[in-house]
Amino acid sequence: MQQFLNLTTTGITFGVLYAAFALCLVLIFRATRIINFAQGAQAAFTTYLAYELVVERDQPYWVGFLVALVAGFLLGAFIERVVVRRVETGPEINAVIVTLGLFVALEALIGILFGQDFLGFPAPFDASSGFAVGDTQIAQTANDRYRILSVLVALGLLVALFRFTDVGLRLRAAAFGQEVARLLGVRVGRMLTLGWALAGLFGSLAGVLIAGGGFISPGFMQTSVIFGFVAAVLGGLDSFVGAIVGGLVLGLTQSYVAGYVDGDLVNMGALAVLLVVLLAKPGGLFSSSVARKV
């Protein structure tokens, strides 16, 4: 029973982090109909920048944190404007291949700049002790609470941006009705760049949170890419709520598979979940019933 509780707690923490990552993918997909396979590598790169500042140059954690977020924002914008813009129209397969190329190139760049070794990344809060509720031990650390809270706050801000601001309205218009939005005066190109920038920022947040209290290596976000992707697909690629639920499902799956079966089979577990869901409901569990009529 205790093991189940521990696994569930860990599963929820990681689930929230994967959900954050899935949200980035959904954000970009809704705006440009592209899956950004490079998202994980972008996040990893900015996390390494934070590492450089905090561990190698003795800066406070929060400086590194902030730099990672800003770098994520800028990197996302840069990639959209310079690379992805050219393949946004045209065959789907081209965009997929481009983001894959970026994925591999960025990860390799990290390896060149920082080496392949596992490096410890600091956590801003205690990452070792859980707490007790009566007789039961809950394996949730202060760091875990910080992670969950950060994602929720960031998510809240993002939703507020979309729902209640003019910029958010323009972003949504650009994502849902490009041509019409242009006719209404929306600078669609800029909105797409902004969308990628926001996704980059969010991804960097996820990266730093995942890294904190653990180890980083050039490929440390690979699992998140897979899991985030599967989570987003579970949610139908169009739904934020679906991405969150998907993230939690994946986090728990990872935890249970690692705990009850074997840590090495975790990725295949995700693949199995993906295939089972897609074979049953090709549009994802939460596929939007809004047909795009005009």
Partner: peptide, 14 residues
Amino acid sequence: GPYLAGATLALAVG
């Protein structure tokens, strides 16, 4: 498209 890429990506990583 991307769904297929993602599924085969999972295979490669897994």
